[in-house]
Amino acid sequence: MFDEGQLYSPVTEHADGRVEVHLGADHPGFTDAAYRGRRGEIAAAALAWTPGTPIPVIDYTDAENEVWRIASAELAPKHAVRAHSEYLAAKAALDLPADRVPQLSEVSARLQPLTGWTYACAPGLVALREFYGSLGARVFHSTQYLRHPSQPLYTPEPDIIHEVIGHANQLASPRFARLTEAAGRASLRVQTDAAMKVIADVFWFSMEFGVMREQGELKAYGAGILSSYGEMDAFSHMEIRPLDIAAMARVDYDITTYQSTLFCAESLDELEDVVGVFFETVDDDSPDRIDAAWARDLASH
């Protein structure tokens, strides 16, 4: 199971003002009434938030801070060995607390001087075009809840550990931040759903699940890998392919399991030359060009 799978639990705001988060039956917190109530409380704070006003402060409990502490402590040695040096340098510069959950306003205050990015709160899933459009304005929509305390190293949905340990540390790198912003700007430029899907697919296989060679070793730079305890051990055993935009846009993937196919950049320069240039040039005709390139490649084999 991909520990940070993009399975946001649906959120309902009832007529009486009560906010309910609909956890799946296999969610670790499904039978925990206190946890379900807490998820609703945190989601309600995000739903009530108005952009441009201070992000709601969540008074995290000792148990929630402990989940963050455990995840931070367990991920740190894996990062030291398996994360790309660009991520490690950015993580050191951001210097997030390891013993407590940071407020999103605190993440913004640390991040903005480094790369100009800020965080916004979200109750759960953000519509695709809204999420990517905000990236183009250097704003990252993040959840504020934590995974169930019974499984501090596993979550079936993106929680604040994924959104911040994975993405905020990544966004503290000027080069990774520019790539993420380029993906957002690309989404504002295209009109068709097909072009939007291509952008999201390439983002998935790069900024979420990208790997890169560094001094002959395979390293992770994607936020989905770097925030997942299990994925940090598994990624080096997957099928590793060279960067190929047509393949990244056409390979099927399952968001609920470890990624069996990963695309590897040989360097940061290559990542920018291939993925960065794609984000800067993609348009509504790109899906047709990608389909044609894919067909030619299949014919040549």
Rank of each mutant, 00 (worst) to 15 (best):
L218Y: 06
Y253H: 14
V202A: 13
S260W: 10
D273R: 12
S206L: 03
L218H: 09
G216Y: 12
D244R: 14
F203S: 01
K219G: 04
D273F: 00
M238C: 14
S206W: 05
D244G: 04
G230A: 11
R213G: 00
V211A: 06
R241P: 01
D233E: 15
M196T: 10
L268F: 14
A183D: 01
T256F: 06
F209N: 03
F203E: 02
A183K: 05
L268A: 11
F203R: 08
D252A: 14
G224Q: 02
L243A: 14
L271W: 10
L226A: 09
A247M: 13
S227T: 06
R241G: 01
E214S: 07
D201K: 14
M196N: 07
I245A: 02
F203P: 05
A195R: 04
F205W: 09
D244H: 13
A194Y: 07
D201R: 12
P242G: 12
D201F: 07
F263K: 09
I225K: 04
L243N: 02
A234Q: 12
G276E: 02
M238P: 01
I199Y: 06
G276D: 08
A183F: 03
G184R: 08
A200D: 06
D244V: 08
G230W: 08
G276Q: 01
A194R: 13
V190H: 04
G224D: 06
A223R: 03
T257A: 14
T256R: 13
E272W: 01
D193K: 13
V202S: 12
H237A: 15
M212I: 14
A200S: 15
E239C: 05
D252Q: 14
E272V: 13
F209Q: 06
L188I: 04
A249R: 10
Y229M: 06
A200E: 04
M238T: 15
E270G: 09
L262E: 02
E217V: 02
E231T: 11
S228Q: 00
V251M: 13
A195L: 13
G210Y: 00
G224E: 01
D201I: 00
D244N: 15
Q259S: 03
M232G: 04
P242A: 13
L268R: 07
